[in-house]
Write a protein that binds this DNA or RNA. Structure first.
Lengths: 340, 340
DNA sequence: TTGAAAGCGATACCAC
DNA sequence: GTGGTATCGCTTTCAA
């Protein structure tokens, strides 16, 4: 019974009209009589006709497909963005390829090569810092959401938070609570994050603007050889063992923050009063923790909306309103800074 | 400078050969002299030739593309599977579409319709319980990973854990620690899970096999109107307030388990000794918690491997070794059952 | 309102 | 070893 796939040609024959007419009816283009319309549609339905997108794409050189390139979908921050971006794109009639680059330039390169071959209409980078050079090859519309590493192309838009300001605000929050010695904790998550420098720069700026002497011993940076959680806990442990005290921690990432909180709890430190901690991303990690961790909401909803909006504009051949969109962030204070 | 995309025809012209020869060289098929080979390849490289997959697909009616249908990629269990499945498929030369069904039959239906039109070579369901009828329409190879809801088709394979046995083992673990009154906690996560009945059935079976009277008051099921965490905490609270005691909890999901643990901690119950708790999935939730939550590892690596293996077999036109693959699970005991 | 036919880019059969 | 050409399914002029 498995009859070959039914084409526009089959329908034309059955309806006694030409393929041109069938195409017109199916796409609601051109003109045709009500009668032919009904006939064609009925037959199409009866035959279970499904347009062959490969043919359509070939003809129109547009696939209604875009690619989502992210370091690792299993990271909750990225997967949330992927979910939202995919949803918005679907609503606009686009399908999404999912590509896990591992933040590896070479792998990204292979992906992009294949995607260009598969004729994607556009690319969305979600997180990471890849810097694949081939990107320049195709002049596809490209949108970067929370992603650094692109080289100057024509049709691209950057969407993200103001990371320097974000770490500045984190630092300010702690000082506002009376902290005097604030540490910076990060596992060099270059694997998942925008450039380390950019991220931390607000911390340094705050210190210098407020005449606070920067203490190198309070800058805790791990190589990210283990999970952020474990590594962060270790860094805190080492710091304390070395005799360097602090009463506040700016943790670049909620996972890091959770590691810090756990390490402090283990040593009997009263988190939220003796030492205040703030993380970033408003992820499940900060919400699950007890005490609940203060954090910074980065607004994935807006990141996705602005990103997709820009991409759709590019795809429509329009000039996007801005090439650099900054999405506002928001400090969420919880127990680790409020105490209790 | 933006020259139109270069085709096989351009190369043929530049090399002074026919498109047939170019195609042969590029695909390492047929025969050609070393000389033409080098010439063609050089020109192709110089011109930055990229095969047009739309054309190739149209001709060969194969897109080297599959679709991943999952309720929600932002769920960490699913996103982990998506990551692994995508990786394995990529290694085999396939691209993956990502589709978030929201576990909604109707939306799934729309997806599948579109995917068939886009000529995907196969479909992988990852989690959920969708039961879209259209699936029967196309006779694509389909693999179900941790997914129930399919109707009998020819070319499909199921890969998953033995869920009834899994909940049986969870229950057994608690009784082995001396628990006498074991509750069952679940938020009817039909949104994310295989059929509730299947999942919980091991709990009931254990009880009946061991002559333990089933107490309805200890079956805590929420409607999943809130996050699992909150809802689970509430269910536990209500149960205790109503005066029904228990010394063990089988939680269908780590999120549920975490909610249970939190609720118990808040009431000053010694989790791991007074009341033992076991969750399921070996997710971040169970590992983050303190006390660490005992759980069941479902083996996402094998789920992905078996699933992709089966799909590749189907795609190659082979008969898969089995149509129902069961991946072993493993109880991981941590503080909430071991105590301290 | 309708249709004939060209063409999108690649493959492969079959001559030469 | 190499090339002409039909073909995949669809859209789109241009005539009728």
């Amino acid at each position: 019974m498995a009859k070959r796939t039914v084409s526009i040609y089959d329908i034309a024959k059955l309806a006694g009209v030409s393929t041109a007419t069938v195409s017109n009816v199916l796409n609601e283009k051109g003109s045709y009589s009500q009668k032919t319309r009904d006939l064609v549609l009925r037959i199409a339905r009866e035959q279970g006709y499904v347009a062959n997108f490969a043919a359509k794409s070939l003809r129109e050189s547009s696939t209604k497909t875009v690619a989502l390139l992210t370091p690792d979908v299993s990271n909750d921050f990225f997967s949330t963005l992927v979910l939202k971006v995919e949803g918005l794109l679907r609503a606009a009639g686009y399908s999404s390829y999912i590509c896990n680059t591992g933040n590896d330039d070479e792998r990204e390169d292979e992906y992009v090569r294949g995607l260009v071959s598969k004729q994607v209409d556009g690319i969305v980078y979600i997180g990471g810092t890849t810097r694949s050079p081939i990107r320049a090859a195709a002049d596809l519309p490209v949108v970067h959401i929370d992603h650094t590493g692109a080289t100057g192309m024509k049709r691209e838009v950057y969407v993200g938070n103001d990371m320097p300001q974000l770490s500045y605000d984190m630092t300010a929050t702690l000082f506002a609570h009376g902290c005097k010695r604030v540490a910076l904790a990060s596992v060099s998550a270059s694997l998942y994050r925008t450039e380390e420098h950019d991220q931390a720069s607000g911390y340094y700026r705050y210190l210098s603007e407020h005449g606070v002497r920067m203490d190198k011993n309070l800058v805790l940076e791990g190589p990210h050889r283990q999970t952020s959680l474990v590594e962060a806990a270790q860094l805190v442990g080492e710091c304390l063992d070395a005799g360097y005290g602090f009463d506040g921690v700016v943790a670049l990432g909620d996972r890091v923050a959770l590691g810090v909180v756990n390490a402090l709890k283990e040593r009997g430190v009263a988190v939220g009063t003796d030492v205040r901690v703030i993380g970033m991303d408003d992820s499940i990690y900060s919400r699950i923790s007890s005490p609940a961790i203060s954090t910074v909401r980065r607004n994935t909803g807006q990141l996705a909306e602005k990103g997709v909006g820009a991409l759709l504009a590019l795809l429509a051949g329009k000039e996007p309103a801005q090439t650099h969109v900054v999405v506002p962030h928001e400090v969420i204070e919880r127990a680790t800074t409020l105490g209790e």
